[in-house]
Amino acid sequence: MSRLSGTAMTLAYERRTIARDLTVAVPDRSFTVVIGPNACGKSTLLRALSRLLRPAAGSVLLDGEDIHRRPARAVARTLGLLPQSSVAPEGIGVAELVARGRYPHQGLLRQWSREDERVVAESMAATGVADLADRPVDELSGGQRQRVWLAMALAQQTPLLLLDEPTTYLDIAHQIEILDLCARLHEEQGRTLVAVLHDLNHAARYATHLIAMRDGRVVAAGPPGEVVTAARVEEVFGLPCRVIEDPETGTPLVVPARRRVPTARPGPGAEGAAPDRGATPAGP
């Protein structure tokens, strides 16, 4: 079953068409991760699924209904999004920013219910920012800030949550911290997550369902164990590699092939003499 799906979508910005006849389904209660090389259309797909981009053809269905036909606030109570970049208003405090996630549940005369208060406190606790509640967002580190934005999206209390490259700009420890947090939200709260990730190994480790894209098409979709194979990685990314078992989790781990030793040593100052990685066949 799938509450969120896109059928025969053509996705385009003004004159540039990113994808044609694209069909995807997000399995319920999955942690779905979309992977693919730069400019393959994965962020565009996420924009379409989160109704930020209206498909030029085809449709996005949320609970069986065209997502653009439903009231914006009703959608926002079902489907949340953590965009790639958000601007924290100058001087805003952490608790106040998280509280803004309650907007779709509020009204002009229902500005701050006890429910709002409880959910905001829970969201801050779940993301470990409760101690920062009164701090200005401007003063936080990148990792803390990303957790605050995630808390805001959680406060929206949507069964479906879309994340556009949530780990970009973070160092490796904070990347893992955010992904662990996502995995916990998925497992403990039963939310359906859809994330665009750059790191293939992170995707293979955390996803329960992978969607691999190239040139606006879905090349493969399924559990990471089936999708992540050496042949598939080379097909999608043009990267010769070996796929081994992650010693920590048992999930697939992509190890890029060693650069072939050039037959003739490049002379001094001869730049660009290294062989084209994409054209060399896989190793062993």
């Binding site: 930020l52 926002a76 999004l81 965009p83 970049s85 803004r100 907007y103």
Partner: peptide
């Protein structure tokens, strides 16, 4: 309230249900 949300960027505001 919607105007306040729009200051955080169009995507964030749209995601929260602001048209």
């Amino acid at each position: 309230p919607a105007l306040r949300l729009a200051e955080m960027g169009d995507d964030t505001a749209s995601a929260l249900g602001v048209r």
